[in-house]
Computed example of a mutant assay.
Amino acid sequence: MGQNADIRRRGWSSSDAVQMLPHGVASYARTYQDGYVSTWHDHPRHQLVYAVAGLMMAEADGTSWAVPAGSGLIVPAGTLHEIRMIGRVELQSLYIAPAEAGAEALSACRAVTVLPLLAGLIAALCAMGNPWPLPPRAYHLGQLLLIELGAAPESPLALPYPPDARLRRVCDALMAAPGAAQTLDHWAELAGMSRRSFTRRFPQQTGLSFGQWRDRLRCQIALRAEARGAGMERVAQELGYASRQSLQAMMRRLG
Rank of each mutant, 00 (worst) to 15 (best):
N4P: 00
A5N: 10
R9S: 13
S14E: 11
P22D: 12
G24H: 12
V25Y: 04
S27A: 15
R30V: 15
T31W: 06
Q33I: 03
Q33Y: 01
S38W: 03
S38T: 02
T39Q: 13
T39I: 10
W40I: 09
H41I: 03
D42P: 01
H43L: 05
P44Y: 04
P44R: 08
Q47D: 02
V49C: 06
Y50H: 15
Y50M: 14
A51D: 07
A51P: 10
G54P: 05
L55K: 06
M56P: 00
A58I: 09
T63E: 06
S64I: 12
W65Q: 07
A66T: 14
A66F: 07
P68S: 09
A69I: 00
G70Y: 04
S71H: 15
S71V: 00
S71T: 11
G72S: 02
G72A: 05
V75Y: 05
P76A: 02
P76F: 01
P76G: 04
T79C: 09
H81S: 03
H81D: 03
E82Q: 12
E82I: 09
M85E: 06
I86S: 12
G87T: 08
Y95G: 00
Y95M: 15
I96F: 02
A97T: 10
A99M: 06
E104H: 14
L106D: 00
C109M: 13
C109R: 07
V112H: 07
T113E: 12
V114D: 03
L115R: 15
A119L: 06
A119V: 06
G120N: 14
L121M: 12
L121N: 06
I122R: 07
A123K: 13
A124H: 12
G129N: 11
G129A: 08
G129D: 11
P135L: 09
P135A: 09
P136L: 14
Y139G: 01
Y139T: 09
H140Q: 13
H140M: 11
Q143V: 07
L144I: 12
L146C: 07
L146A: 11
E148P: 00
G150L: 08
A151E: 13
E154T: 09
P156I: 09
P160C: 01
P160G: 03
P162L: 07
P163M: 02
P163S: 14
D164W: 04
L167A: 07
R168A: 15
V170G: 04
C171E: 04
D172M: 09
L174H: 04
M175I: 08
M175H: 07
M175Q: 13
A176R: 14
G179D: 10
A180K: 00
Q182V: 03
H186W: 14
H186G: 02
A188Y: 09
A191E: 08
A191G: 14
A191T: 09
S194A: 13
P203R: 02
Q204R: 13
Q205V: 03
L208P: 01
L208I: 01
F210Y: 13
G211C: 04
Q212C: 04
L217G: 05
A222N: 07
L223V: 03
A225E: 14
R228W: 03
G229E: 04
G229K: 05
G231F: 12
E233F: 00
A236I: 08
Q237R: 15
Q237A: 15
Q237G: 11
Y241V: 06
A242D: 11
S243M: 04
S246H: 12
L247V: 09
M250F: 00
M251K: 05
R253G: 14
R253I: 04
G255W: 03
